[in-house]
């Protein structure tokens, strides 16, 4: 896992694909071209991008392609029907998923090593579900998925898909795995603090094999901003939660010695299976 000391190259080719469109650092990504169209660029960025696409044939063509796809969508899509369909689906999934989570805090968990972290156990109303959300970051058949509920969101939690989260958001986890074992979930935040997310007790909790099985507790994110790595550890034998925390701390100091900042820790080095999730916490944006 040790990374080489030199920076990777800026331009990386993909087997089986043509060269990238970008010719140099001034070239615009599709995201920039989209933001040009949606008015999200600053005055300076907008001027620079417009100047560049006037000079660079590759970016000019890409810009035209995006404009055409916008025009096609606007002229062919039935926006009213799409909006009505999305609204009815959103309401259907809201009522369908409402019973999956009990989001009211019930008791405070002992907070790992971090006084900053506020971790609360939230009792679940009902553990099993017919809804099968996709899992992510599978390792050795064991994976973790994260559900989020924002404080101002309606009752249902939604599968976390990498969107930035905010202090006060609540997370609930589900796991997939073909083997039973003993589960611990810890997190390392941007300040290098380690917190225990699961279980509330001192020993890793026995779990059964299955798909999308929710853990019977959830956590509320504290005010520490930045990236956070969540590590689920499934061991074949019972293990003390403190041993998992100690392993995370060792991995953290090893990463620090290799020049990697918190929370980038390598494998915990336990004889167990790991699954990871990464979240990014940002301050609550100002109301526009």
């Amino acid at each position: 896992m040790t990374e080489p000391p030199t920076d990777p190259p800026n331009d990386i080719a993909l087997p089986g694909a043509p060269a990238r469109r970008r010719l140099g650092p001034g070239c615009a990504s599709d995201l920039t071209l989209d933001q040009l169209a949606t008015g999200e660029l600053s005055v300076a960025e907008r001027a620079a991008t417009l100047g560049h696409i006037g000079l660079c044939a590759a970016c000019g063509q890409a810009h035209n392609r995006l404009q055409e796809s916008r025009a096609t969508f606007a002229s062919t899509a039935n926006l009213a029907a799409l909006a009505a369909d999305a609204l009815s689906r959103a309401q259907a999934t809201t009522s369908q998923r409402r019973w999956l989570f009990g989001w009211a805090p019930r008791l405070a968990l002992p907070v790992g090593l971090s006084a900053a972290a506020v971790v609360m156990a939230l009792a679940l109303l009902m553990p099993s579900s017919g809804v099968a959300p996709p899992d992510t970051r599978t390792k050795g058949g064991f994976s973790l998925s994260t559900y989020v509920k924002h404080p101002d969101q309606e009752s249902a939690g939604t599968l976390h898909l990498g969107e930035p989260l905010h202090p006060g958001d609540r997370l609930q986890f589900r796991y997939n795995g073909s083997d039973a074992g003993f589960l611990t979930v810890v997190a390392v935040d941007g300040a290098g603090q380690i917190s225990i997310y699961f279980p509330p007790g001192e020993t890793a909790q026995k779990i059964q094999p299955g798909r999308d099985l929710p853990l019977p507790s959830a956590v509320e994110l504290d005010g520490t901003l930045g990236r956070e790595i969540i590590v689920a550890v499934r061991c074949a034998a019972p293990i003390a939660v403190s041993d998992v925390v100690a392993a995370a701390r060792r991995a953290q100091s090893l990463a620090g010695n290799n020049g990697r900042p918190a929370p980038d820790i390598g494998p915990l080095g336990l004889p167990c299976v790991e699954a990871r999730q990464e979240i990014t916490k940002i301050a609550q944006p100002k109301t526009r």
């Binding site: 989209d34 799409l82 909006a83 609204l87 999934t93 969101q153 944006p285 526009r288």
Partner: peptide
């Protein structure tokens, strides 16, 4: 449609994004 369902369910958060794209 699935993306827009997500937008609707997180609409308060979405409205506050300075760069929705």
């Amino acid at each position: 449609q699935e993306v827009f369902v997500r937008v609707i369910k997180s609409v308060a958060d979405f409205r506050r994004q300075s760069q929705p794209s």
